[in-house]
Design a protein around this nucleic acid. Structure first.
Length: 276
DNA sequence: GTCCAGGGTCCCA
DNA sequence: TGGGACCCTGGA
């Protein structure tokens, strides 16, 4: 990977083939906004950035300084990752191969654990666009304001921040039947922030068992939290789309462990492939 | 206006 | 182990 600053813009050239547009729109994240002209605006923890890529495989521009880019955005975007080499080492079946060819350039973001817990509880039986709208409303109501070149953006709030606003504000989030799920886990996390945060450092099986004990977190949501919020790339969340893939192309059953620690990335390739 | 499904999970038989 | 219910939204 190459990284350098030029006239206030930091440029990144990953070793891997990288597609910013696919990475940000394939459904793994909910809060990035398309600005037009190949540029996206997004927030991670209490940082905001504009990212631009003229075309897949081209150098990527980050509107931030070199130090912040190195410290915050290189890990977030997984610019250092070497998926292409790992994929070559796997004997992919025809469908996985087609999904990869179609979706190549998608990378797995290293998103915030707590934000992913809440986002994926909200995601159940919900539309992609609506998930982002709900998460944005929560951030705007409870999150710390980030002034980004005159634009007001909001960090995703902590559990304590979310409890500080009144229940009538919670009603404006439009959580629907997921209200009790979110409320419960926010109260749990606010009571013992460090204990809850420690889930992300547990071995994968223990983390899965712990997560699925909470109301509103079943197998699919737990696997999404493992994959997107903890970067456990061996996780393979099965939603209705992936289930369709398994039914239509794998005769009803698929042992994703044959993909090893690329299973989660191949899941993203398949999800992107079948949805388009 | 009605109907239906959307990145599921819980509950109860 | 399987079916129904659950909140809210947008498109047909």
């Amino acid at each position: 990977m190459k990284i350098y600053e030029s006239e206030g813009v930091t440029w990144v050239e990953p070793d891997d083939f990288y597609d910013i547009s696919k990475t940000l729109t394939c459904g793994q994240c909910f809060r990035w906004k398309y600005l037009g002209e190949h540029a996206y605006l997004g927030v991670h923890t209490n940082h905001a950035v504009t990212v631009y890529q003229e075309a897949p495989g081209k150098p990527i521009a980050l509107l931030t300084d070199l130090d912040t880019a190195r410290r915050v955005w290189v890990p977030y975007f997984d610019f250092d990752a070497q998926y292409d080499r790992k994929i070559k080492d796997l004997a992919l079946d025809n469908y996985a191969r087609s999904a990869y060819e179609y979706s190549k350039g998608i990378h797995l973001l290293r998103q915030d654990f707590w934000e992913m817990v809440i986002s994926y509880i909200i995601s159940q039986r919900n539309r992609l666009a609506n998930i982002g709208a709900v998460v944005d409303r929560i951030a705007a109501a409870c999150g710390e304001e980030i002034n980004y070149s005159g634009i007001k953006l909001y960090a995703f709030p902590s559990a304590q921040d979310m409890l500080e606003v009144s229940p009538s504000v919670w009603d404006t989030f439009m959580l629907g039947y997921r209200y009790e799920y979110v409320r419960n886990i926010v109260e749990v996390a606010a009571r013992d922030p460090e204990g809850f945060a420690s889930i992300q450092f547990m071995p994968t099986e223990e983390a899965y068992a712990t997560l699925t004990r909470y109301r509103g977190i079943g197998p699919k949501v737990a696997n999404c939290i493992l994959l997107f919020g903890m970067h456990r790339t061996e996780s393979f969340p099965i939603d209705i789309w992936i289930q369709r893939v398994i039914d239509n192309h794998y005769g009803g059953s698929l042992d994703a462990s044959k993909f090893g620690d690329m299973a989660g990335i191949i899941q993203q390739y398949m999800f992107n492939y079948i949805r388009n």
